[in-house]
Nucleic acid binder design. Sequence first.
DNA 1: TTAAGTGCAAAATCTTTGCAAATGT
DNA 2: ACATTTGCAAAGATTTTGCACTTAA
Lengths: 143, 143
Amino acid sequence: MIFNQHFEYLLKKHQLKRTEQRLRVLSLLSGKKVATSQPDLESVIGDVDRVTLYRILSAFEEKGIIHKVFDLNGTANYALCSDNCDEHDHHDEHLHFNCTSCKNVYCLDELDMPPIVLPAGFKLEKLSFSATGLCPKCINKES
Amino acid sequence: MIFNQHFEYLLKKHQLKRTEQRLRVLSLLSGKKVATSQPDLESVIGDVDRVTLYRILSAFEEKGIIHKVFDLNGTANYALCSDNCDEHDHHDEHLHFNCTSCKNVYCLDELDMPPIVLPAGFKLEKLSFSATGLCPKCINKES
DNA sequence: TTAAGTGCAAAATCTTTGCAAATGT
DNA sequence: ACATTTGCAAAGATTTTGCACTTAA
């Protein structure tokens, strides 16, 4: 869990006004170790207009505060970026694990990603890895 | 380019009727080495209803004839599976390369994917790798 | 005070569903 | 002939846009 103070710093840093709605989004995202979809956010965030949520998420993404990752159904899920992201330089090259049972998307930052060599002629900018399977919680439920 | 005869075999194999519309989809997909989005298909396929296209694509995906991969914008792109796919066992664990300029999605089957070790507790079912950057065609255009 | 942000209504997209007519086997 | 598949119309869902009101700085 990250402090409110840090959220305010984040907003100021990116010249975004400190609003109740934005703080709630940041607080919700920081509370989860998994990426959260727009509909999920909407259902728990309470009294924030759907359109506002869209706009907050896309503003945050542009500024590099959060990153977007698509799950198995192609719906966007959002997670806080590590601190050293900005609009020009996203670092979300960790593995995203999609649980087929609970549908959660885990950001596994701690894993080292292997180097990938592309065929000649391709210029690599960004790599992303994603895995599908069962998360620890759902494995336990099954057995 | 694959032969029409092969498409008919594919359809029969999966108990799908040999229709003009389905053959056209197969032929278009086989003609490209890149995955194609639903809107792109729609624009070149000619006189096939949008709804029919949706249904064809989802039927093909269920049967394991094509696989779906999401591009940078979260829109679904489709590509023919290698021959040994079926509904229970998809093999599309190759790297997908997304060109930021022409938006094409390349299926780079020939690359070996490195093994990934997940944290304890996660059960891996499927891995997928995707890369972003410039494809050979677009690099040449730039310089 | 004033530029940015929010909420509401409405438009524009995208995707799915129901059903009658057409088509493949 | 009969089950599938298609096209059209219409419903649902998702996302975007415009604009007046509100709010943080």
